[in-house]
C-alpha cells in the first residue's frame, strides 16, 4: 500500500519544456514513474525524453487516463494551469511553482475542493513512495534519489521540500526507511495540510509512525495536534521545528513565504508546546529523529 500514488499511477507535467521540468521529468522517468505527457502551450508536437508534448491538458485526458499532474509553470500562469487541470478532471494536483499570492492560492484550493480534486502545494516538491512511484521533483536524479529514499515504515510530511529529503535520508541511513513522503509546501495557503493528510497515513498499513517537519508561522501544527487528540490516532508522531532563532526576531520573515512569527501561535516555542501536549515527540536535532521513532514504535 502507499499514500496517494501507486505502482500504475500515471501523470503529466505542465510546463514540461522549462529548465526545472526537464530536469525532474528525466529524473522521474529514470526512477520508473509513468509520465504519459507534458503540456507547454505553443510547443505541442515536440517530445522530451520520449514524452510527447501537447498544447493543452485536455488533448491528453481525452485519450488516456491521467491520475495526476505536476505543475511547474512560470508564476503568472500557475493559477490558469491549475484550473485547466481541474477542469480536465485530474484529481491529484501538485503545484511546485513558488510565489503564488495567497488570494490566488485560496481560490485554487477552493476550486479543487469543489471538483473533488486534491491539491498538494504550492511551493512543494511532491510525493514519493520509495521504489513504487515518484510524483514530482523530490530526491534529484534516480541514483541520488535512491540513496535518500529506501522503502520502510515511516511516513513523512514536510513544509520544506529540501527537508523532506534530508529527513528521509536520515530515516534511510538509520535503517527505518520511508513508507510515503509528502512535501506539502511552504506557503501560508496550501492545498493539503498535515491534518488533511494524516488520515491517509493512518489508513496506510505500511506506515508505523509519522515524522513532520515544521517551521514558524501558521496554525498547521496546532491543527495536527488537535487531530491526533480527537481521533485517538494509532500513529506515533515525531516532529522537528526549525527556525527557533526566529523567536528572537518577531515580525521578520525567513525561509518560506509562510514563515513569519506575528502571533504566539506562530512561534516555534508555542508549536512545540502544543505538539508535546498532544503526545507528539519533538526532536532537538534532525539526527535525533530516527531514535525517537524507534522509541515510539518499540523497535
Amino acid at each position: 500500500m502507499a499514500v496517494i500514488v501507486h505502482e500504475d499511477f500515471q501523470f503529466i507535467v505542465q510546463g514540461i519544456t522549462g529548465r526545472e521540468a526537464l530536469n525532474f521529468t528525466r529524473e522521474c522517468l529514470q526512477y520508473g514513474s509513468k509520465i504519459i505527457g507534458g503540456v507547454t502551450p505553443g510547443k505541442g508536437g515536440r517530445e522530451v525524453y520520449g514524452v510527447p508534448v501537447y498544447d493543452t491538458v485536455r488533448e491528453i485526458t481525452e485519450k488516456e487516463r491521467v491520475d495526476g499532474t505536476v505543475i511547474t509553470v512560470p508564476l503568472a500562469f500557475a493559477p490558469d494551469a491549475a484550473y485547466e487541470a481541474i477542469d480536465a478532471g485530474i484529481k491529484e494536483i501538485i503545484i511546485i511553482t513558488e510565489g503564488i499570492p495567497r488570494k490566488d492560492a485560496s481560490a485554487i484550493v477552493e476550486y479543487a475542493e469543489l471538483h473533488g480534486a486534491r491539491m498538494i502545494g504550492p511551493n512543494c516538491l511532491g510525493i514519493i513512495v520509495p521504489d513504487v512511484c515518484r510524483f514530482g521533483s523530490l530526491g534529484g536524479p534516480a541514483v541520488d534519489c535512491r540513496k535518500a529514499f529506501k522503502p520502510g515504515v515511516v511516513g513523512v510530511m514536510s513544509r520544506s521540500g529540501g527537508m523532506t529529503t534530508e529527513i528521509c535520508n536520515a530515516l534511510t541511513l538509520s535503517g527505518l526507511g520511508v513508507s510515503t513522503a509528502i512535501s506539502i509546501g511552504g506557503d501560508p495557503v496550501i492545498g493539503s495540510t498535515y491534518a488533511d493528510l494524516i488520515p491517509l497515513f493512518e489508513a496506510d498499513e505500511d506506515t508505523k509512525a509519522v515524522v513532520v517537519y515544521s517551521e514558524p508561522g501558521g496554525t498547521a501544527e496546532a491543527e495536527l495536534a488537535r487531530w491526533t487528540q480527537e481521533n485517538n490516532s494509532r500513529l506515533p508522531i515525531v516532529a522537528f521545528v526549525a527556525g527557533r532563532f526566529m523567536d528572537e526576531m518577531p515580525g521578520m520573515s525567513f525561509g518560506h513565504a509562510g514563515t513569519v512569527v506575528n502571533k504566539k501561535v506562530d512561534s516555534p516555542a508555542d508549536k512545540m508546546r502544543r505538539m508535546r501536549e498532544a503526545g507528539i515527540s519533538v526532536a532537538e536535532e534532525i539526527g535525533d529523529i530516527p531514535n525517537l521513532v524507534r522509541e515510539r514504535i518499540g523497535n
Binding site: 514536510s158 513544509r159 520544506s160 521540500g161 529540501g162 527537508m163 534530508e166 511552504g186 517537519y213 517551521e215 514558524p216 522537528f240 526549525a242 527556525g243 527557533r244 532563532f245 526566529m246 525567513f254 525561509g255 518560506h256 514563515t259 536535532e285 534532525i286
Partner: peptide, 15 residues
C-alpha cells in the same frame, strides 16, 4: 546556505 527549511535548520545549528 539553502533551502527554505534547510537554512532555518542550519542557522539554528550554527547558533
Amino acid at each position: 546556505i539553502g533551502a527554505g527549511g534547510g537554512s532555518l535548520t542550519l542557522t539554528d545549528a550554527v547558533r
